[in-house]
Simulated scan of single mutants.
Amino acid sequence: MSDELVERFELAFNKIHQHLKEMNRYPKNDNFAELLNHSKDRGVVREYYDVLRQYAKLRNAIVHERVRDGYYIASPHVEVVEELERINQTLDQPPLGLDIATRPVLFFYEETELFHVIEAFGKHGVSQFPIYRDGAFTGLLTDAGIVRWLGESVDGGSVVVDRMTVGDVLRHEKVHNVEFVSEAASVFELEDLFESSHGEGEKLKAVMITEGGERDGKLLGIVTLLDLIKVDGAEG
């Protein structure tokens, strides 16, 4: 039984090691502890960081401190092996971006009267809405963008909202960094997109999940950095 548990432990451990290599794009230093440390803020790795560090020590004892064939100085308990296999299973089949996305997504067209959008901001407590024209995505309208437009539109102490459309305001909105992914995208892929946007100009504002990942495909969900932080907080 001991040999079987060791084999199962090593198999699951090696698969997790491979996942860590993939997450870190196969760096030259592929030491398990180093890869784990570099990945500690990501999804399931963050949740199991401490336990994986301990399992790495156990693995070193099993592999490097074997007394002779079939006799190990340390051997994993069945509960340890089963937990390691569960961690690997989660890495094999990570949660989808749609699992944490806001959906259904409320969106508006450029010809929509601005008054309706202002009402929606207050009612739904969100900070941005996707905007479309003739079925094509044209940008994000944010609460900050509306405030900026109001500041630029004050005339004699008042602002005329009547007959204004979303399109009128969208022209005053910043061009936000938005990515499009398919419904098959995992949470890990979304984390990569937000992470890679750091230091590359404007940070990623949102990830739009659409059918087939097409820019103008059917909108299925939207994910912000806050959504990922909420998930990490829940897992922690």
Rank of each mutant, 00 (worst) to 15 (best):
A185Y: 06
K218Y: 09
V159R: 07
T210V: 02
S75D: 02
A33Q: 06
L193D: 09
H124T: 03
V169K: 02
T138R: 15
E65R: 08
V175A: 00
G167Y: 04
S182N: 05
V181E: 06
A206Y: 00
R171F: 14
V187F: 11
G125C: 05
F108Q: 02
L36I: 14
V160I: 03
R8W: 07
V44C: 01
N60G: 06
T210A: 04
L225Y: 08
Y71G: 00
F180G: 04
S153Y: 14
I209S: 03
A234Y: 04
K230A: 03
I100M: 05
L225W: 08
T102K: 11
E7Q: 09
F129W: 06
H17R: 02
P130Q: 13
A120M: 05
E4A: 06
M164P: 00
M208I: 15
V51M: 07
I73Q: 05
G201H: 04
A61W: 09
I73W: 03
V154A: 09
L98I: 06
L190R: 07
E200L: 12
V169I: 12
R68L: 09
E4D: 13
L141N: 08
L91V: 14
L190A: 04
A61L: 11
V223R: 00
V159W: 08
S197D: 02
S158A: 09
E173W: 02
V231H: 13
A185M: 08
D3P: 09
E183Y: 12
F194V: 04
H176Q: 10
D69L: 11
N14A: 10
V178F: 00
F115N: 13
E79L: 13
F129D: 08
L204P: 00
T224P: 01
S39T: 15
D92W: 07
E195P: 00
E183P: 11
M164N: 01
Y109D: 15
D30R: 10
A206H: 00
G201Y: 01
R133K: 15
L36W: 06
L98S: 05
D227P: 03
V105Y: 08
P76F: 00
E214D: 09
I146L: 13
N31I: 03
D69M: 11
I229W: 09
V175T: 01
G213V: 08
R171C: 12
V147M: 15
L98V: 05
I222C: 01
Y55W: 12
D134T: 12
T224E: 00
L219Y: 14
G151W: 06
H17M: 03
Q18M: 02
K57Y: 15
R148I: 11
L170M: 10
Y132R: 15
E200P: 01
F107W: 10
N88S: 07
